[in-house]
């Protein structure tokens, strides 16, 4: 039984169709990544699952039942825009929000999570004294402290340094190991590739990708070459059979044209420079994202 089942849900704001006949099934105990350019409908979808917005049409089932307000007691939610009562102490704010969901033994749960995310010494400090990273961790604890069966995190890694990102990632995987279903939206494609059992991409309100990373990549041919050379991108310009080059500085990714031949391309590169590595591969999630979202995703790419 899927934890979440969306059946042709549609949501419009005025004349703008934010989510268009979207269907999705999130298996229990999975980590499901939502990706898509800004304004594509990710947050609207998550808000509909949280019963904050109501779909104009379609059905939402959560835990095998039609979505109802009480369902949200079993769901933890971390919205994209973070918000905490700044004048309350960290422990007070966590006990308050945890108590709204499930107040049983909330004090102990709060202590455990504060310890787990290295915030114990800040428990009696006011929220306004916390750094941005610490506030984000507190916001994460708000979502998970009541031990929900489903956790929805809207861009949980935005603004975190690598240390806090790792600690947040470990916490999410620990939740999954405990049987919790986790949905998170992200613009960090590598994080989605590494963490998610399933990836769902929404673009202009419609589902464009849904499945495991392998199944998504299988939809695309092995049309990408990752290459490292002595002279970098300068030596790779205007190669016959290459449709597009992505320059990552230390390495470059070349997308083959439909009639492109990797052997001919390797030979052409060898004539220009010394090759340090050459790998034929399927496109990365990042590359797939760019192919689908095109120019509209560039702001995300450079963010």
């Amino acid at each position: 039984m899927p934890t979440i089942e969306l059946n042709k849900i549609t949501k419009t704001f005025g004349n703008h169709v934010a989510v268009d006949s979207l269907s999705l099934a999130v298996p229990q105990g999975s980590v499901y990544g939502f990706i898509g350019p800004n304004g594509s409908g990710k947050t609207t979808t998550l808000r509909m699952i949280m019963n904050i917005l109501y779909p104009d049409s379609g059905e939402i089932h959560v835990f095998g039942e039609p979505l109802r307000p009480s369902s949200c007691d079993r769901i933890g939610y971390m919205p994209e825009e973070r918000g905490l009562y700044k004048r309350m102490k960290v422990r007070e704010v966590l006990e308050f929000f945890g108590g709204l969901k499930n107040g049983d033994g909330i004090g102990e749960k709060v202590d455990r999570w504060l310890e787990r995310l290295q915030l114990a010494e800040w428990a009696d400090k006011k929220v306004e004294t916390l750094s941005k990273g610490m506030s984000q961790k507190v916001q994460f604890i708000v979502a998970v402290v009541a031990q929900p069966e489903l956790v929805i995190l809207d861009e949980p890694f935005t603004g975190l340094d690598p240390v806090n990102t790792e600690s947040m990632k470990d916490a999410i995987l620990e939740l999954q190991a405990g049987g919790t279903t986790v949905i998170f939206s992200t613009h960090d494609m590598s994080m989605a590739e590494r963490m998610c059992d399933f990836i769902f991409m929404i673009f202009k309100g419609r589902k464009v990708l849904d499945g495991t990373l392998a199944s998504i990549q299988d939809q695309y041919a092995a049309d990408t070459i990752r290459v490292r050379t002595r002279d970098g991108a300068a030596a790779l310009r205007d190669l016959q059979g290459v449709e597009r080059m992505n320059d990552y500085g230390q390495a470059q990714e070349l997308r083959l044209a439909p009639d492109g031949d990797p052997h001919a391309i390797l030979q052409a590169i060898l004539e220009r420079t010394r090759v340090q590595s050459f790998e034929i591969m399927k496109p990365s999630l990042h590359d797939i994202f760019i192919r689908i979202a095109g120019s509209e995703a560039k702001e995300v790419e450079h963010a």
Binding site: P69, C72, G83, Y85, F97, L100
Partner: peptide, 16 residues
């Protein structure tokens, strides 16, 4: 204040 400080959406995740 709850709206501008983005607390409202966190609350709406728990209460109607």
């Amino acid at each position: 204040e709850e709206k501008t400080q983005r607390i409202a959406e966190v609350l709406l995740g728990s209460i109607k």
